[in-house]
């Protein structure tokens, strides 16, 4: 887990004005694995992703990929923000949103290429949203909206994917579709980081977990992380876990 293909976060500390959000966090994320960031509400999961992407400043630490600062390699990154960050009443269609994934690759002053349109069509097909192409994004269900954003991130043809709570307001069937795509990305050698505060059945779909609550409680493969003691520390005893048939159930 220490090879140079990993995404390496070292000693990261983030403050919002006087409030300390994250303290001294160190972990690595390996390619070819689906990695979950878990922790209770307000644990700093979104903050962590935003700091890694350079969307908010951090006070201390380093975030490296291939021994270079990650934010200098934005062309390899795709990010899907948390639902609450998006204005769903915005006048945009599904197609408009997916094409946003092609803006950076297209470049300034140029119209979208035929290639970009084909890629956008394919990614929409992949998430099963082709029929909704011309729908306003505000008129979709939560699960459909998440799939559209997933399509947008796929259209970016990135190597590192960040998803902030992609399962909020999503039913089990859609959750399975989304996890299948995550698995596919991992199998292609991508880095896949998924924030998830839900500790239900779905946690079994992750390979590695990073357990946060302002500080790093544990990280590594899910069996190691999902120890009663770690969960007790993260969730202050509000959840108890027991292992059953090698599946974890809350």
């Amino acid at each position: 887990m220490t090879n140079s293909d990993c995404l390496k976060v070292e000693n990261l500390t983030v403050n919002y004005r006087q409030v300390e959000a994250l303290r001294n966090i160190t972990f690595h994320v390996a390619p070819k694995r689906v990695t979950g960031i878990i922790g209770p509400n307000g644990a700093g999961k979104s903050t962590m992703i935003k700091a890694m992407l350079g969307l908010i400043p951090y006070q201390f630490g380093s975030i490296l990929f291939h021994s270079q600062p990650l934010i200098q390699q934005r062309q390899y990154i795709a990010y899907v923000p948390q639902r609450s960050q998006i204005d769903w009443t915005y006048p945009a269609t599904v197609w408009d949103v997916v094409m946003m994934g092609r803006v950076k690759k297209t470049g300034w002053l140029k119209p979208f290429s035929v290639m970009s349109r084909v890629i956008a069509k394919n990614t929409l097909e992949k998430v099963g949203m082709s029929d909704f192409c011309h729908r306003p994004i505000g008129e979709l269900s939560g699960g459909q909206q998440q799939r559209v954003f997933l399509a947008r991130s796929l259209a970016q043809e990135a190597d590192i994917f960040f998803f902030d709570e992609p399962f909020a307001g999503v039913d089990q069937k859609t959750e399975a579709i989304i996890f299948n795509i995550f698995r596919e990305l991992a199998n292609q050698g991508k880095i896949v980081v998924v924030v998830n505060h839900d500790l239900g059945e779905s946690i079994n779909n992750f390979d590695d977990l990073i357990l946060l609550n302002k500080t790093l409680i544990a990280w590594g493969n899910k069996e190691e992380v999902l120890q009663e003691e770690n969960l007790y520390n993260a969730y202050s005893g509000k959840v108890s876990f027991f292992s059953h048939n090698s599946k974890f159930v809350a």
């Binding site: 992407l53 062309q75 923000p81 915005y90 408009d96 803006v103």
Partner: peptide, 22 residues
């Protein structure tokens, strides 16, 4: 006219736009 696609992305999803390096 010339910056329509960038402005659309930015006004719809500021974090997303910043994350791709706009």
């Amino acid at each position: 006219f010339f910056f329509y696609k960038e402005l659309l992305f930015y006004t719809f999803d500021k974090l997303g736009a910043e994350s791709v390096g706009l």
